[in-house]
Design a protein around this nucleic acid. Structure first.
Lengths: 346, 346
DNA sequence: CCGTTGATTGACAACGTTGTCTAGAGGCTA
DNA sequence: TAGCCTCTAGACAACGTTGTCAATCAACGG
């Protein structure tokens, strides 16, 4: 009457096992296993009895035991930087979709751009014996993964390459995209162009910087040190950097923002300036077309990246043994107006 | 020479177990277990030998076996509608953060607003024996969860209540928020106000509709059938609905958009109209302040919801046995301009 | 009527870990 | 020195499932 009053007669917190089902149905353990897994070799009559016992006891197979026995967990891990960043939403979703089609569950977590936390999370996933890992790395040394990969955990890096180990990677064309963005500004008459990017330890930030320099050099334009600022994407930092390069002795007339968070802050800052300043951002974002002027961006395709990475992962899990390779996903310049603002006379 | 050439001498795809470590260190199985788990009762010398064996073999504890033995998985499941929806990003992140503080991993998946898929996902998580579940329900009948809850899986519903079972829930004040939104429009002179909402089978859509009617009734305003449209949030549907109510014989002069996706499409449609139309949207979104006119919204606090839900879940897991309760998170009207547009004469 | 075949079924070990219990070593007191 | 206590260490069972293998039985051909 105390804790068995919940409708069933089982003790609260205790679940029936196959043994209970077997006893209730008057059959052997293995027969229950066969029914639960839809294996052949069971008479319709026996199957019915077992099914009845299953439903009346509320039995649900314990996948922990199954996993232990079978060795495969039918789950993959996804480690990304921030679950709340809208850029990773479609990537996350795409990975989940592919996992689902392969009957696998997705375990994920945020590294918060902290290499130690990334490692902690990855190793926790390895201890769970996920079948594979999709990692957007925060750190730049992944040798700690070597024993895991040797032990058979398939691993694919996305957005940024692995550090100091050989592994599959799916990357955006950061260099080319940045070059296109800056070339677009140059084509509209700009000669003094600023670049505000993420921390230089992040691979994508370095590649985009390289693209910036490449485009400037290709046009024969000099680059003033004060036009380039790499660092945190916190609004304060970006605001300060933007203001500095707009108020410099040789002020920029256009800004290339190195990722979506930078772009958003840059839009706010530019909005407050007396004269219009051209802007191109890396990463597309919702409503970029509704802001006035509409924001010209270099769009990545995060869903495509996620699909590609997960696809590669499952090919590995199916036993394909090619050497690790790096896949590059193209970017696309979407001209919406903010990049076409001509330089205002200084 | 064929498959043992990866640096270590173990077979590829096979991992060392505690037994291997014990053999290598010349100690018993249980001693290894003690070292791995930091339990007392091991001399420093023995511990050193075991540690050495662990690192040289690349041993990593198999949590599947541990889970099977201990009964607790140290993981919780999160089922939401769409991992890519920016509204759920901060909620997801907040749940993860709380889980992390409790040493638990997060397994998650999208229901795609499909009740069958929700159930499939939830039951898969139960089979994994997650300790608890945070569910943003797609369906309206959760009796299938009863045996699981009885068996001890803590469950908290977020954003929408559970259907046909008693369970904890964390909800926004959808009714109050909607009422405030519509009252705001009324206060700025509007008498013919349209409501474009989500599918009526979704609880939040119904609550917001109720808020709409309540505000209209409180102001003594009649509501024409053609002013209310519930259905899919697909852009085409929303576009058609908006256009219809703006071109009706008694056209609306203001629109209340029932959620973030509706708002975005509504902004695009209104932008194309010759005369300005007032707009208030449910859900805040990034850049709402940068669009012109800036969008007035009723903001929910998804991170707060996630934190609250996860906190409640872990309290349950700590053994608190109060009866299920429903927590309401307040909403906040953020006036930015689009709601203050006066009605244009018709 | 008997041996053979095929289908159905269950006993048992194993997956890798942790909880329980006992053995043994060593130190202390009487 | 006997007796007792503490501390370290390991043997063993158990968690719930699945793979292997052997047993049983009905049907069938000769």
């Amino acid at each position: 009457m105390t804790d068995t009053a919940r409708g069933t007669s089982r003790r609260y917190g205790t679940r029936p096992t196959m043994k209970d089902v077997a006893a209730r149905a008057g059959v052997g353990l293995k027969t229950v296993s066969r029914v639960v897994n839809g294996e052949p070799g069971v008479t319709p009559d026996t199957e019915r009895r077992v099914q009845e016992a299953i439903t009346s006891l509320g039995f649900r197979r314990n996948d922990s035991a199954r996993i232990l026995r079978k060795g495969r967990t039918a789950s993959i891990g996804l480690v990304l930087e921030d679950l709340a960043d809208p850029f990773y939403g479609p990537l996350n979703r795409a990975v989940e979709e592919v996992a689902r089609r392969h009957g696998a569950l997705l375990i994920n977590g945020s590294s918060a751009e902290d290499p130690a936390r990334e490692q902690e999370l990855v190793l926790a996933l390895c201890a769970r014996r996920v079948d594979g890992l999709v990692i957007i790395p925060a750190g730049d040394d992944h040798r700690y993964l070597e024993p895991e990969i040797t032990a058979g955990i398939a691993t694919v890096f996305v957005d940024r390459p692995a550090g100091r180990i050989e592994a599959d990677a799916v990357l955006s064309d950061n260099f080319g995209g940045a070059r296109d963005a800056v070339a677009h500004l140059i084509a509209h008459g700009h000669r003094r162009i600023g670049f505000i990017g993420d921390q230089p330890r992040i691979h994508t930030a370095r590649e985009r910087l390289r693209g910036y320099h490449s485009a400037m050099a290709a046009a024969g334009l000099p680059v003033d040190d004060s036009w380039v600022s790499l660092g945190s994407t916190a609004p304060d930092r970006v605001r300060a950097a933007t203001t500095t390069m707009l108020d410099a002795p040789t002020p920029v007339t256009a800004v290339f923002a190195g990722n979506n968070r930078v772009t958003v802050t840059a839009v706010r800052v530019l909005r407050e300036r007396p004269r219009p300043v051209a802007l191109v951002g890396f990463d597309d974002f919702e409503l970029a077309d509704l802001v006035r002027p509409a924001i010209t961006v270099v769009a990545q395709d995060p869903a495509h990246m996620g699909r590609t990475a997960a696809g590669l992962l499952f090919r590995r899990l199916d036993g394909i043994e090619d050497p690790p390779r790096s896949t590059e996903i193209p970017t696309r310049l979407i001209a919406r107006g903010s990049g076409e603002i001509p330089p205002s006379e200084s």
